[in-house]
Design a protein around this nucleic acid. Structure first.
Lengths: 185, 185
DNA sequence: CCGGAAACGGAGCAGCTGTTCCGCTGTGGG
DNA sequence: CCCACAGCGGAACAGCTGCTCCGTTTCCGG
């Protein structure tokens, strides 16, 4: 059975997670471990005791972010207006990409991320498909537009996060508008 | 007056440039100098003698790539069909971004790149403005679409280069289509 | 064909990274 | 209250990077 850890250990673990969340959001998933430790006010060894490898810390932090996306998606599925549900999802996605660099890199990262959050990704894709189908049934999107077009548009928005910060927000807004114009009937 | 360099020195310099062009196109502008040297079949010291700093080698290689873009742009300006000129420019841009990672990173890179090729960038922007104006005058693009929308679309396409290679080409094609759909009347 | 200078190669330096080791600290059960 | 030991901090290691130093090789003008 699980031993009860010492109180200071548990508190330190929590401080590491908080520091990692903040650091990754601003500096990206490749932020140095030393930086996370410094921000948490602990030594690197403490960090590594709770998360034996960098990947485990990253996964822990991302899990809660990915979860937030799921919540938003379920909310959109409840929206009775098909166009508002779809366009709102796109715009909120853009907003999230701007404000959380960790989430952005998780989406754009190659291979191993996709594996780690495969289920969530699939669920998200399926929900997006429902939103697109509803919008098409309601006749608010162009003929020929399918879910892959929308997904491509989302990826385009996400990718823009990597340009210089000031330009990013402005250009993302414009591209989001362009994507909406591109799919709307 | 300029001393005539030794024959082997000139030949080695050329081999370095060729190796750098190939290496950067495939592995990006951050490819290790050791790798460029290895590919050129010279020692790292030789490489550094001809290009005292990494940035100078990068700039040299990029100059010719950027030049190629200018050629394409001038060609588009000669096209009498406004929509074909604009859409062709967008599609060729997408193609170039797919095939040359160096050019892609130059466009997306922060700050110092913009400074190095400021003139070329401005000329390119101006030419694109002309293409957009002509397309608008011909009534082939939507009301309200301006050159910044098109530039945002191009940036979106360029940014996509960074996703996993197999996905990139497919998604870029889709987004290019989406952008064209977004601006067309 | 020779010798001095130009050019060369690769070991080495400094500085970054993720991760581990180990002597010390301070918590909390008895 | 006390001391075993879970937990800690930070120096240290290994491996990457851009870049430099220097003994050795190669070119080429006389």
């Amino acid at each position: 059975m699980p031993q009860k850890p010492r109180a200071d250990a548990r508190s330190n673990r929590e401080r590491v997670v908080v520091a990692a969340r903040e650091t990754f959001a601003v500096a990206g998933l490749e932020a140095p471990m030393r930086e996370v430790a410094r921000r948490a006010g602990v030594g690197v060894a403490t960090l590594y005791r709770h998360f034996p490898t960098r990947a485990e810390l990253v996964t822990t932090v991302l899990a809660e972010r990915v979860d937030a996306c799921g919540v938003q998606m379920r909310h959109a599925l409840d929206d009775p207006d098909p166009w508002r549900a779809l366009s709102g999802t796109i715009l909120e996605f853009a907003d999230r990409q701007i404000h959380d660099r960790a989430l952005n890199e998780a989406l754009l990262g190659s291979g191993e991320m996709s594996a780690a959050f495969g289920d969530e990704r699939r669920e998200h894709a399926r929900a997006l498909g429902v939103l697109v189908d509803r919008a098409r049934a309601a006749g608010v999107i162009r003929d020929g537009v399918d879910v892959d077009d929308v997904r491509a548009g989302l990826l385009a928005i996400a990718s823009l996060r990597r340009l210089p910060p000031t330009a990013a927000a402005r250009v993302i807004g414009r591209v989001a508008g362009l994507v909406l114009a591109g799919i709307r009937a």
